[in-house]
């Protein structure tokens, strides 16, 4: 009684915390994680383990010994970076390459900007792109997956890689895509980065996040719509050179990128229209890189490029204010 608290309103708080939101994202990633482990076997588990452990450990060590700031490990954001980085790597990536990816993701892309909430680019993607340009051999070679339960899998390059290669040798898109059926793409039966392999599991996670109101669907949907539309136009114009909408939606980590990387709070715009433009930009850049760039897969670059525009989008687009039209 003698110690009554006096403070301004409001006097209660919702149950949401940074940690609870991050936990929801982790829960949403579980189907994709299970899917990739079942599909690729224990080596995928190793990549995931090394990635998550290094990200968490680095965040703890850097905040404690270097920044001398309260540790932010408890908010679980480093765990997500770890999972996303792992899902962006082939299961064959050696552990030390994964570790370097984690150093770049957490150390360079996140903590050197000041930690959670301060970074401009998605940490996991920066890590991934760093590895892609530094260790192309590890990042683009795909050997036959060894599924946990002997899941039958196709070996070789990723679908997008195969097609880019085939086009250079003069084949047409129709010949090249006839090898893939869309059921396989949806249900994880192709070579690729771990997270690219099961669109359905990723979409389930995305739906969970939307239902829990952790994220809003606009960014993801506008990416899907832009990719589909761009691909449709190009495919109609020249079916022998340009792949079609469904193929582009289901390959090259687009689902992973659109659902989990582009929707990262810190590196995406806050307003509705900012988000839509962000998504359209990612979708369009992805398709341009895929069709005309030297990399077969463009999602990572597209998201990082659009990340750079977020401060501008936040400045230009505000939500409508009450009574000011």
């Amino acid at each position: 009684m003698s110690n009554l608290i006096i403070s301004p309103s409001p006097h209660i708080h919702s149950k949401d915390s940074t940690r609870s939101l991050m936990l929801d994202v982790i829960i949403a990633l579980i189907p994709a994680v299970i899917c990739s482990v079942v599909f690729y076997g224990w080596r995928e588990l190793l990549v995931l383990g090394v990635s998550v452990a290094s990200c968490v450990l680095l965040e703890w060590a850097v905040t404690k010994y270097w920044m001398k700031a309260p540790s932010t490990v408890g908010d679980l954001s480093a765990v997500i970076t770890g999972i996303l980085l792992a899902l962006n790597l082939p299961y064959t990536t050696p552990w030390w390459v994964v570790f370097i990816g984690a150093v770049v993701a957490i150390g360079v892309a996140k903590l050197s900007f000041g930690g959670i909430g301060q970074n401009i680019w998605n940490p996991a993607l920066v890590g991934r792109v760093f590895l892609l340009v530094s260790f192309p051999t590890y990042m683009t070679s795909w050997s036959a997956p060894q599924g946990l339960f002997g899941v039958d899998a196709v070996s070789g390059a990723t679908p997008l890689g195969t097609i880019a290669e085939g086009l250079l040798q003069g084949s047409s898109v129709q010949e090249l895509t006839s090898a893939y059926n869309y059921k396989d793409l949806l249900f994880a039966n192709l070579g690729g980065s771990a997270g690219e392999v099961c669109a359905l599991a990723l979409l389930a996670g995305f739906v969970y996040l939307c239902c829990r109101k952790v994220i809003k669907p606009w960014i993801t949907l506008s990416i899907f719509a832009t990719v589909a539309l761009t691909a449709l136009v190009f495919n109609l114009a020249d079916p022998s050179r340009f792949t079609g909408p469904l193929f582009n939606l289901l390959t090259g980590g687009l689902v992973l990128g659109a659902c989990f990387m582009a929707t990262d709070y810190v590196t995406s715009p806050m307003s509705l229209w900012g988000g839509v433009i962000f998504g359209v930009g990612i979708g369009f850049l992805t398709m341009m890189i895929r069709y005309f760039g030297s990399y077969p897969e463009g999602v990572s670059f597209a998201i990082l490029i659009m990340n750079s525009v977020v401060p501008l989008l936040n400045r230009w687009f505000h939500q409508p204010k009450f009574g000011r039209k």
Partner: peptide, 16 residues
Amino acid sequence: TRRAPESHCIRCGKCA
């Protein structure tokens, strides 16, 4: 009525 310690803004936009 507990107020948890303040941490970094994660730019989630929930306030907006």
